[in-house]
Design a binder for these strands. Structure first.
Lengths: 122, 122
DNA sequence: CCGTATCCTTAGGGATACTG
DNA sequence: CAGTATCCCTAAGGATACGG
């Protein structure tokens, strides 16, 4: 993995992958989580089997209705999030990660670790 | 890790962590890579020990001068990227990941895997 | 409860030209 | 080569009010 490039230091990381392809994959993935709220929403969803709209809203704190719903719609059309409507009154809607959506979990974990590291350096 | 929540399904992920803290870490990390180009820049830097400005620009293709330089400045002041100026003419400037910056590598790898997975589903 | 609909503001980002 | 300096514009995001 870490092959010597010069006599002095090793390359930080060689992912042993076709370069253009790799970039493309990273790009693809990062696009699906772009925006101020997407990863935080996905993170929240990853903590529960199902999550109601109102709960999500409460936990995310400062997000506006508009943003929450539009981000959820994006994630839904990307196939990362499932929306389940119960035909009851008052309305009940539950969101959850799809199988594809669960693929984001390792990313979230890595991000958590990185954030934790950032916080405690110095 | 995956404790049963109902009789039917397991919780997708319980990170066995203080919830508020966790969210905070994820948020912190995601802020430092927000923006259209940051992860792609970090990814590029992670592939090499040092990378010259012009090379970076070439590899990133469609990025504008303004964006590249401002993203690099952001990353620099976040302590993720190092800028080394050689007092020669014509000018030569090399960018590299700091030790903190290298902490992003697992995130990039996870993103790559996720992107790869997204691409090949169906 | 779960959203829409509007309006509004800012900043993210791009194009181009110029400089030490 | 490695940036600055401008100008410009769209869309991301926020606040609020209303609707099924």
């Amino acid at each position: 993995m870490n092959e010597k490039k010069s006599e002095k230091n090793a390359t930080p990381a060689n992912y042993t992958d076709g370069d253009a392809f790799f970039s493309c994959h990273v790009e693809l993935a990062s696009k699906s989580i772009s925006g101020k709220w997407k990863i935080l929403i996905l993170y929240r969803l990853s903590l529960y089997e199902f999550k109601r709209y109102s709960e999500l809203r409460k936990e995310l704190g400062s997000i506006s209705e508009k943003m929450l719903i539009s981000e959820l719609r994006d994630l839904e059309s990307d196939g990362l999030v499932n929306r389940k409507v119960y035909p009851v009154v008052p309305p009940k809607v539950e969101y959850s990660l799809t199988e594809s959506g669960k693929g984001i979990i390792p990313v979230i974990i890595a991000l958590r670790n990185f954030g934790c590291f950032l916080k405690h350096r110095n």
